[in-house]
Every structure is written in C-alpha cells, then in structure tokens.
C-alpha cells in the first residue's frame, strides 16, 4: 500500500492539473525565461525595457491599475527617477478646499494612471472591445508568460477560408484566432534607452517579463526564501527520520 501513495498523489495532481482548455487554443512557443526554475530571477535591464514598451505602446489602451509608481524602484529606478516618471502623468485629485476636483502630476504613491476614465470610455475608443487591465494578465491566462509573448508575436495573415469579422485581426495563439487588438508591435517601434535593437521578438520578450513582474512582484523573494525553507525542511526531515529510527529501534515491527 505504501508504494501506491506516490501513484495516488500523482493521479490527484493530474486530476487537478486538467483545467478546461479554451476552444481552439494553440500552444504558444515555449520561451526560456530567466525567472523560470528554482533559482530564477528577473533581468533588470529587460524589465526596464519592458516598462518602456508598456509605457510607450500598451499604456495607450491598457491600464495597470494594481501597480504603483513607487514599485518601480524594484526594477532599478532610483527614487528621483520614479518621482520624475510619475510626474509625467496627470492624475485627478480632490476635492480641494473649494470643493473642486483638480489635476496634478502623479506621485510615487499613486497607482499607474489608467488611459481611460472607465470601462465604457475604453470600449467607446476601441470599437466596442475592452482592453483588459494588465496587472495580473500573466497569471490569469492559461499558458501564462508564454501565452502573452505568443500573442505579441502571433499576428498572421488570416487563412483564406476564414471569415474575419469587421475590425478583427488574426492571431495564431488567441483562442478562436480573432482578436480585437491590432498587432501592437513593429520593428523599431520604440527606441531603447540602452541601445538594444528593438525587434518585435525583443520587445515582446521584454514587455512580457515586465508584466510578469507586475503580476508577481514577490517572485524573486519567494523563490529565494523557498530554496532556504526547502533545504531546511529536507535537513529537518532527515534528522527526524534518524530520531524516529533510533526511538523505534527497541520495537520489533
């Protein structure tokens, strides 16, 4: 019966790991990310490039409402740089002493300012489609970062036999293949501050990594702590097994 424990656990794990797959989903290409694995960590330069892509491209339509400007110090910006970055955006505040709302430059303590005042405004500006908030997008889609990256690089000519709806584009990895978002990236769309060549593939990888950080800012700390905790527990388990053996040595069983 002992041998079967592993089998049962594996079977249960499998049963749990079979989420309902969206129709027509094509597996996106698997990317080797620096944040994968037990010792994974973010590439700070890539995060800053990804932030640049988000700000100059994605942020035109997509909000990132769960991230604060102050969080940007974690990807390598100094506090003064963060203050300057935040101040580039206007945010509505108030009411003031006269009861009036007013605009002011954003501060590090503000959340990322959304491009639209509300969902209806966002739909009205986007042909009826709502650009989703990107704060958790790498966690909330089946396939995670690979899927988001695939979406960026997955725009193709629609197959001749496929009937496309008005204003829709064909994407190889989007469930159903018809996506309301036009291809967001093209070569040299942004000019990277660090001189990296801005190919579509490069920008897709950078912005995906930035969005993984936005969704899981605790990722590096979590993995670093995890290595220590698991090592400690393995050691403790080994020692407890030795103690158990010693204590049970006078019990024939």
């Amino acid at each position: 019966m002992r041998r079967t424990l592993g089998a049962i656990l594996a079977a249960l794990a499998l049963a749990g790991a079979s989420p309902a797959m969206a129709a027509d989903a094509v597996a996106p290409p698997s990317v080797k990310w620096t944040f994968d694995g037990l010792f994974g960590s973010f590439d700070r330069a890539a995060l800053r490039r990804g932030f640049q892509v988000y700000t100059e491209v994605c942020a035109v339509c997509h909000s990132l409402r769960l991230v604060h400007y102050r969080n940007l110090t974690a990807i390598g910006f100094s506090e003064d740089q963060v203050k300057a970055l935040a101040a580039e955006v206007e945010v509505t505040d108030g009411p003031d002493a006269e009861g009036e709302m007013f605009d002011r430059p954003a501060r590090p303590s503000d959340r990322f300012v959304s491009p639209f005042a509300n969902d209806n405004a966002a739909r009205a500006a986007n042909n009826g489609a709502l650009p989703p908030d990107l704060s958790l997008v790498t966690k909330s889609r089946i396939g995670g970062p690979d899927y988001i990256h695939g979406l960026m690089v997955g725009y193709r000519e629609a197959p001749a036999e496929m009937e496309m709806s008005e204003g829709m584009d064909y994407n190889a990895y989007f469930p159903g293949h018809q996506i309301a978002m036009p291809a967001p990236l093209s070569d040299e769309l942004v000019e990277y501050a660090d001189g990296t060549e801005a190919t579509v593939g490069q920008m897709a990888k950078d912005v995906t990594q930035f969005l993984v950080w936005a969704a899981e800012p605790e990722l590096e700390e979590r993995k670093r702590m995890g290595v220590k905790v698991v090592l400690f527990l393995v050691l403790l388990t080994g020692m407890l097994y030795a103690v158990k053996r010693a204590i049970w040595s006078d019990v024939p069983h």
Binding site: S140, R141, I142, R222, G226, V227, V243
Partner: peptide
Amino acid sequence: VKDMFGLSAFLTIFAGFVFFAPNFFGEP
C-alpha cells in the same frame, strides 16, 4: 516522533508548492 517525521516530510512537499508553484492548484 513518527508524526513529527511525517509532518516534516509533508511540509517539505507543501513548501515546494507554496514557493515554486503557488498557483498549481488554482484556476488562472
């Protein structure tokens, strides 16, 4: 002592999920 050993073995596997695959059992 046997329960302590079992607990420690369980916690090791459990920590593996918590720290390295925390959303394994969840729905995206």
